[in-house]
């Protein structure tokens, strides 16, 4: 049973990856955008944002990584909405295949897409002066958290893709909420620079936790209060993992339930 489910998931993953191969535009544009962000923030805002004890570009890169994988996860909504609209989900559902395979296959191929984007971004980061300063293992741990987060975000996106009525709606509904989510965080500016009303929101934002975890693991964090205050600032790594598991615990069952319902309308 489990083997069949894994094999079905892999067949669907492969099918989605073939699409990326046939239509590389999507990857190209989803890669150009983060590179543009790195360059714009590094060179336009870089001088105006104070990050005590650390070069802004080093501070910035983990933030851009997290923002990018969050947006990258938005593709899950589009892919699922597209399959529903084109009737491919009906075909899948009339086959004796594992029920979750379409969703696991979709989130897996979107994760692979995200990994590819992060590789391109890392190279861009290194070029503008970003470094992992804390050794190999902590470097790997940082990427592991980043990809766990990317995967968790894909499942939120899956629920959106299964709830909307068309690809066009998925295109905006899948992304619009990510702007406040990623900007109301420590991704681009230290939370200490935010108005006091917004500060706790930004500090407890899962995006901030993941960004801070990466900064700590990679040695890209600014000194002292610029990291924020209180519990989220002190335990970013465990808090990030906790956020990701919480998101998965809620959104995986929710997606599967929606998938059944969306397809059986």
């Amino acid at each position: 049973m489990v083997l069949e489910a894994a094999s079905d998931g892999w067949v669907v993953t492969k099918r989605n990856l073939l699409k990326i191969k046939r239509v590389p535009d999507l990857v190209i544009f989803s890669t150009i955008q983060p590179i543009m962000f790195v360059l714009l923030f590094a060179y336009v805002f870089g001088g105006a944002i104070a990050t005590p004890g650390i070069n802004y570009r080093e501070f910035l890169i983990p933030g851009i990584f997290v923002q990018t994988v969050a947006f990258g996860a938005g593709i899950t909504a589009i892919g699922l909405a597209d399959d529903l609209q084109k009737g491919i989900v009906d075909r899948f559902r009339s086959l004796p295949m594992s029920r979750g395979a379409v969703l696991f296959g979709r989130t897996s191929s979107d994760l692979i897409n995200n990994v590819f984007t992060v590789i391109v971004m890392s190279i861009t980061g290194v070029i503008v002066g970003w470094r992992i300063n804390e050794g190999f293992l902590r470097g790997v741990a940082g990427f592991a958290i980043l990809f766990l987060f990317a995967y968790a975000m894909s499942w939120i996106s899956a629920v959106i893709g299964l709830s909307v009525k068309s690809v066009e709606v998925a295109q905006s509904a899948g992304f619009i909420w990510m702007f406040p989510l990623t900007f109301l965080s420590n991704a681009f500016v230290p939370t200490s620079s935010l108005p006091s009303v917004l500060r706790p929101v930004a500090e407890w934002n899962p995006i901030s936790s993941v960004v801070l975890a990466l900064r700590e693991l990679w040695g890209n964090a600014p000194a002292g209060a610029a990291n924020g205050t209180g519990f989220p600032a002190q335990h970013p790594i465990w808090l990030s993992i906790g956020w990701c598991l919480l998101i998965l615990a809620i959104f995986v069952p929710m997606s599967i339930a929606r998938y059944r319902r969306a397809a059986s309308r």
Binding site: V11, R15, K86, G87, D90, R91, L95, P96, M97
Partner: peptide, 30 residues
């Protein structure tokens, strides 16, 4: 396991080749 369904909107994957579409379905029938 015992039915074949062909819908009103041809449910083929545009980006896969004809061969890949059929091979995929075969794999999903295990």
């Amino acid at each position: 396991r015992i039915i074949g369904v062909s819908g009103q909107y041809a449910a083929v994957d545009d980006y896969l080749t004809g061969y890949e579409n059929l091979e995929m379905v075969g794999r999903l029938y295990h």
